[in-house]
Amino acid sequence: MSDKILEIENVTVSFEGFKALNQLNFSMDTGELRVIIGPNGAGKTTFLDVITGKVQPTTGRALFKGKNLRSRSEHNISRLGIGRKFQTPRVYLQLTPRENLDLSCNRHKNVLATLWGRPSGPERRTVAGLLETIGLTTKADIPAALLSHGEKQRLEIGMLVAQSPDLLLVDEPVAGLTDEETENVGNLLLTLADSHSIIVIEHDMEFVRQIARQVTVLHQGAVLCEGSMDEVQSNPQVIEVYLGQPEEDDG
């Protein structure tokens, strides 16, 4: 058994000739927190799509804990232990935060178990604990549609954790958040990193600096370079394709 939780081997995804991912190789250790950055169109979201089964690789393969993910459907991959948070928060608006979490927390997700099953005591406690962690206890029983954008982001991260996945894929968790909220989400992710493997995709460089240990830079569907934040920042190629511009904007 390798202690690699995720291995991507020579994956190419081509949409009618356009290669969103091009011979991508990537691997990640169990328990790692990895940040993936890259300019628009670098293939970051397609990368997550391949892992979660939304898109099938044209060539190459993706292994999760040594198991090939090809031709597994999304819900199967999710049940293996991969949770995904989407770019824009996707929570069930007509349900309350408590119900949202309960659905994710449900251990038996087939039809009959859902029909006959009642939320068990431990599950209810997990949900109550999560509501506290994401700071939504007071709003636990109002429809999620009434939550603010930041609260929805936190709720969706909560839903992800409720699934108790081994690998969390988090796509732009702080888009549209205030600085304070951003820091909260950062701390939340760092806490989660103690017990989960996490991949974070992010544009916000401040935020990346806050949480990053290991950074991977994607460019034109392939890995441009990998290393610590400082190494990546001083890499001339990276500065050329990506970091140069945001730095100037900041100044």
Partner: peptide, 21 residues
């Protein structure tokens, strides 16, 4: 739970898949 699953399917079916349903 079953009823909430139905509502969740109505609101965002694809999201359900990524939650393992």
């Amino acid at each position: 739970r079953f009823g909430r699953t139905l509502i969740a399917i109505r609101d965002d079916e694809n999201r359900m898949r990524f939650s393992g349903y």
